[in-house]
Simulated assay, not measured.
Amino acid sequence: MKKHRLIAVICLIITAITVYSCKTHFATGQENYKATASPLAFERGKAMVFSSCAGCHYNRSVNKFIGNPIHDVPGIVGKVYSANLTNSKNHGITSHYTDQQLKYLLKTGIAKDGRFIPYMLRPNMADDDINAIIVYLHSNDPAVTAGDTTIGVTHYNIMGKLYMGITAKPLPYKTGIKLPADNIAMGRYLVDNIGCFHCHSKKLTSLNYLDPEQTKGYLAGGAKFKNEQGDNIYASNITPDKETGIGKYTKADFRKALKDGESPKRKLHPPMPKYKSLNDREIDAIYSYLQTIAPVYHKIKGLKII
């Protein structure tokens, strides 16, 4: 009898956790917002989308933001594909989103139907950059014009839903954020909002989007990725440690690494993109900020990204 009761209790716990994990719908924002278009906003938006979103969403086989399979998600939780960001009425998401819905999604992770999408979260992004991104996504630039195809449909199994329900939660809707004027503050802002700390910290599953510096292993590297062949690739240490980080990089070395994908000692591996859309002032700001953080001795084994 006791054994049956124990089994029943375990089943109830599993059921409760499962129900909790399946809560993937939340209240959506109701702000009356319309992006303000201008040539300057378009150019800034294009630069930010290519810097922040291209790593996952830009498909280089067709030179469009039609999405890609995400190889880094363990198969045990299901299959994940990045979304089609083009203006396709059949497969894209941006053509079905208002400006306000896109803004709310980028800030909180909550889609227009209330689903929580635990990627591309930018709670600390300045209002001007959010505006610029939306202007670009709704533009006629070739990279976001309709790509009427789908790479695949994301499907989480019960394990994936359980994990997301317990660990992933929507973020607060923060507005009124200004672009920093100070050089080092701008570097910190870019490290946050183009996602440098996402890849170059300890794990993708332990990111602190609201307070990036509280992320485990902040910028000291170690996060594991997989390429299309299934090989493991590890993000490198970009703290200013002279032996295991970028402490010996000159400003010119750092520019070349970000723009051309070449460090002083090696060619860099995908998924590290080439940041052609960042200007020298922005890259130098990132470099200046990285020099201010505490150096961490952390030697990464295996293939490097940067």
Rank of each mutant, 00 (worst) to 15 (best):
V9L: 07
T15E: 07
T18G: 15
S21N: 11
K23Q: 14
T24M: 09
E31Y: 10
A35V: 06
P39W: 11
M48E: 04
C53A: 10
A54K: 08
N68H: 05
P69L: 06
D72I: 15
V73E: 06
G75F: 10
Y81D: 01
S82Y: 06
G92R: 11
I93Q: 04
T94C: 09
H96N: 06
Y97N: 14
Q100V: 03
Q100T: 15
K107S: 06
I110V: 11
I110H: 03
D113N: 11
R115F: 13
I117S: 14
L121S: 07
R122T: 00
M125I: 07
D129F: 02
D129S: 05
N131C: 05
N140S: 13
A143C: 00
V144Y: 14
G147S: 08
T150W: 07
I151W: 10
G152C: 07
T154F: 12
H155A: 10
Y156C: 02
M159T: 13
M159S: 09
P170D: 10
P170G: 03
K174M: 00
T175K: 03
T175F: 02
T175G: 03
I177N: 02
D182S: 14
A185T: 05
G187R: 03
D192M: 04
G195W: 06
H200F: 14
H200A: 13
K202D: 13
K203D: 08
K203N: 08
L204E: 07
T205V: 02
S206K: 14
L207W: 00
L207C: 01
L210V: 02
D211L: 02
L219S: 03
N227G: 02
G230Q: 13
T239K: 06
P240G: 10
T244S: 15
G245W: 08
T250Q: 00
K251V: 06
F254I: 01
R255K: 15
E262P: 00
S263H: 03
K265L: 05
R266P: 00
L268A: 09
L268N: 15
P270L: 13
Y275M: 13
S277K: 14
L278A: 12
E282R: 07
I283Q: 03
I283W: 03
D284I: 04
Y287T: 05
Q291S: 09
P295F: 13
P295N: 12
G302T: 11
I305H: 00
